[in-house]
Amino acid sequence: MSAGTNSRAAIWIVNGLLIGGAVLTLLPLLWMLSVSFMQPGEASHYPPPLLPAKATLANYRDLFERGGMGGYLLNSLLIAGTVTVLSLAFNLSAGYAFAKLRFAGRDRLFQLVLAALLIPLQIAMIPLFLLMKWLHLVNSYGGVIAPALATALGIYLVRQYARSIPDDLIEAARIDGAGEWTIFLSIVLPLLKPMIATLAVLTFLASWNDFMWPLIVLSDQARQTAPVGLASLAVSREHVQDYEFMMAGSVVTVLPVLLLFLVLQRQYLQGLLLGSVKG
């Protein structure tokens, strides 16, 4: 057996396994897309059809006209968009200050932020609900947005990144008489651009996909997000057998985040790696 045939077999095995794996991960998503274009009832046949016999947009029309999906998507967009923009402002300024500004108790406070990384959010949810009730934020966008405005992970990521900014740059601007916020906005922010993109895509996806807290705090249908609305359609007796209708619902819920990920994949994966080394 020569080395040549050996490695040719290895090439086939490695790539065959990779293709097999990719098919297994993508198949459910492709099947979702295909079924969403089928006529109502078409998927409930044996053997299960893989492609629609006659593609239709009826499920999507139904979804927006009767299922109220348009409203859910708008709510999601509004909440995830607001959370992304505002939490960027909060996390960027705090992360930068922890990296570059001096103030009493800075290091002790940062230790606390790191400790907050370990707190599971579900512990906080029940008192948080009572707090929101007291603040009259139950059933409002504010109830979902407010707790997400700052995250320990975001502050940590910005701080790690901002530490690489040369002190001389900041010091020189100070000597020129620039205020701290001017320095931050005109010198530091442009340097943080890669981190801003990373944090934006991480935050938007996390906020869009969030389920448990929006489920708890948004009881009124008119305010619910796409995942919460989709879940209530999925468990309702009316739609449980409507494969095609529900698949259309999954498509419109998943597609925005999937596309955003495809466009900003590099930034997203970078954030994932930086966030995971926190240990």
Partner: peptide, 10 residues
């Protein structure tokens, strides 16, 4: 990156 509710439905 997919929404857990949506893929659970699938």
């Amino acid at each position: 990156v997919t929404t857990v509710v949506a893929v659970a439905v699938i």
